[in-house]
Each structure stands twice: as structure tokens, then as C-alpha cells.
Design a protein around this nucleic acid. Structure first.
Lengths: 201, 201
DNA sequence: ACCTGAACACCGTTCAAGT
DNA sequence: ACCTGAACACCGTTCAAGT
């Protein structure tokens, strides 16, 4: 072997990320390993270290592409003029995606940078785009403000983080599940929006 | 060696859980291993399999005791008569605990049962007690209802899950942190309570 | 009965050696 | 330059063997 050059560096990276994605989809993040990815690609583990710093960097790529993938699903949803209805639509889309792509989305929940470093810029901007969808839905509420977009984005971030908590607890079955998750999500959105409205007067 | 009986089965379990707790506190969940716990106890790894089914069961004990520990901290907080002020107090306590006991609380976030099984009863009831604190704070809002305690508990669960999302995203630095976490928490509590109030009329 | 330690089947990561 | 595969230092888990 050695010196095959069947694929460009770029192609190899793509192959690795795709293989990792498939392994996570099938067996969850815990089942992922460098050796397994290498085998799935038809290479050996050493090769992966020429493409990525380490396993964490590779996982990060899967995470980011998953967030981006969710964005394109949510962005395609038909929108409503009413902020509450719009947000409910987005939240249901979020929940649907996290159920259909359970293992992949769970990886997004569980992954964290080694040594408590912050998540990289590329991840942040992928999330930013998702939060932006909620922000646009909220904007009508802040019509009378001069900085309506900024305010909407702040509140959208709160809703995003809250939804993240609800869905992640539900997915790990960490919330005694007497109530269906849809009711919990509806409760969050309805009350939060009602609160924003009440405080705008 | 072999056959020492220096400690009862119960003592050994306690020792193992305490050792695991210390290792997690110092190096995070990732640094925990059966072998490391065994060494810290002065035993070998085989012994731990007479005390616990596997590593997951041992981690679960640490998780539960951490949730219980947080409960006793939050339960000791002095309470206010106003629901909003009371909830803010609890939420700040939650945040404080998660920062002071960062690695331990992070383990609570990250841990999930193998094979997607639900979390066991003991964990659920430990969480239940925590949610109960928020439920009691909310009750004045539902005074006029016949099932005020049930309603309060449902809404408390929504707030609990949302707070969980905010703190976990912040702890992993997954939320572009332009806003301080205290503002995000305040925004959640204020708007949610305002919404509940507005919808009670 | 209690505990050990070797054994098995895995890991992530590095790097000299081959083409 | 590209890729391999052995090597290192770890894993979780099992279980025959010792006292």
C-alpha cells in the first residue's frame, strides 16, 4: 500500500465526515471511533490524523453539518403572520427534526469542546442562523421599538435555549413524562409570547 | 490478597461513589474510569463489578446524589412571597450551583442511560423534588383554580426544562455569549410569569 | 465469600518505515 | 507526499484462581 492518492484531501475529509455521520446515525456518538471511521472509508486510522487534528475536530464537523441541516429544514417551513403561530411551527419543526434524526441531534446536545474551550465560530454562526428564524418570527411584537431586530434576537435566543432544554430532557427521558412534549413546548411559547406582549404595553 | 473484608458491602459502595465524585469534580466525567476509581479506593477493578452492574450504574449514583445535593442548597434559600422574585432566587441558585460544581453538574447534563432507556425512578423523584420548589413558588398565580397545585407543577416543569437548557448551553459555551446568562435567565422568568398572569385574567 | 490479576476486545494517538 | 501498521498507554468487562 502507501501512496494511493485515489482521493484528494478534500474528498477524503468529505468521506470521513459522511462515514462518521452514518456511524452516529446508526449507533449513536458512543459507537463512533477513529478506527471504525477509517475502516468504513477503506483506510487506516493514521490517515485520519493527516486530515483532522483529532477525533473531536471530526465530530465537530458532523455537529456543524447537522445544525446546518436542521436550519434548511426549518427555513423551508411555511410561515404564518402571527408570531405565536409562527414560533409554534418552528418549535414543532425543531422537535420533529430531533426525533427523526435522534442520534445525530443527540450528538449536538452531548458534544462539548475539550478543556472547556468555547465552541468555534463556525458552530456559533450555524446556530445564529437558526436563532435568526425565531427572531424574525418575533419581530412584529417589537414593531414600535427603534432596535426591534436586536431585541427580537435576544428574546429568540432565550426561546432557543429553552426549547433546547425541553427537547434534550425529553430525548434522554430525564423529565418524568406525564405530559406530552408538545404540550410543554406549547406552554413555553404561548406564555413567553404572552409575557412579551403584556410587557410591551 | 483476596478476602480482606476490611469494609462492608455498603461501605465499599459509599467509598466508590465518593471516589467517583472526586474524580469527576477534578477532571470531568471524561476522566472517570473503573480502574481509576478502583485505584483511588485501594482495590482492583474486579471488585467494583461485585458492587455495581457496570460503570453506568455507578455514574448514575453520582448523578442522583448531585441532584439531591442541589436540592438541599436550593431548599435552604430564603423565599419571597412574590412568585417572580421567588423564581428568580431559585434560578440564580441553580446557576450558582452549576458554576461552583461545574464538572459534577455537567455530568448530570451529559449522562444518559445506555440503549435509550428511561432514567430510573430514583433519579426522577430527585428531580421531582427540585421542580417542586419552583411549583410552590408559582402557586399564588393559580390561587383561583381548583387544581392549582397540579397546574403549578406543570408550569414549573416547563421552567425547569428551560432553565436546564440555558445553563447547559452556557456551560458548554454553545450560546454566542454576548448577553450575560443572568439576563437570559431573568428574561425567561419575567416573561413566562407575566404570560401566565396575563392568561389567568 | 471476597478479592485479585490476567485476559479479551476494544480505544485515541504517534510515528518510523515503506512506496 | 501519502499511507500503513506497529507501538504506547489507556479503556470496560469477565472470570479462573487464590485465600
Amino acid at each position: 500500500m502507501a501512496r494511493r492518492s485515489d482521493h484528494s484531501r478534500f474528498e477524503l475529509k468529505e468521506m470521513a465526515i459522511k462515514a462518521a455521520c452514518r456511524i452516529i446515525t446508526e449507533g449513536g456518538l458512543k459507537s463512533l471511533s477513529i478506527r471504525r471511521i477509517a475502516t468504513a472509508m477503506g483506510y487506516t486510522s493514521g490517515t485520519l490524523y493527516q486530515l483532522f487534528e483529532n477525533l473531536d475536530e471530526l465530530i465537530l464537523e458532523v455537529i456543524i453539518s447537522t445544525v446546518e441541516d436542521m436550519y434548511s429544514e426549518l427555513a423551508a417551513l411555511k410561515t404564518d403572520n402571527d408570531p405565536e403561530a409562527n414560533l409554534l411551527l418552528l418549535a414543532q419543526g425543531y422537535r420533529d427534526y430531533s426525533i427523526v434524526n435522534k442520534n445525530r441531534w443527540n450528538a449536538v446536545f452531548v458534544y462539548s469542546q475539550p478543556d472547556a474551550r468555547p465552541m468555534p465560530e463556525r458552530y456559533q454562526s450555524a446556530v445564529q442562523k437558526l436563532v435568526g428564524l425565531a427572531a424574525r418570527a418575533l419581530e412584529p411584537i417589537f414593531r414600535n421599538h427603534d432596535r426591534s431586530d436586536e431585541l427580537a434576537f435576544q428574546e429568540a435566543r432565550v426561546l432557543w435555549a429553552s426549547l433546547y432544554g425541553i427537547v434534550s430532557l425529553d430525548s434522554a427521558q430525564k423529565l418524568s413524562n406525564f405530559e406530552p412534549i408538545d404540550d410543554i413546548i406549547a406552554s413555553l411559547v404561548t406564555n413567553y409570547v404572552a409575557g412579551l406582549r403584556a410587557r410591551q404595553v
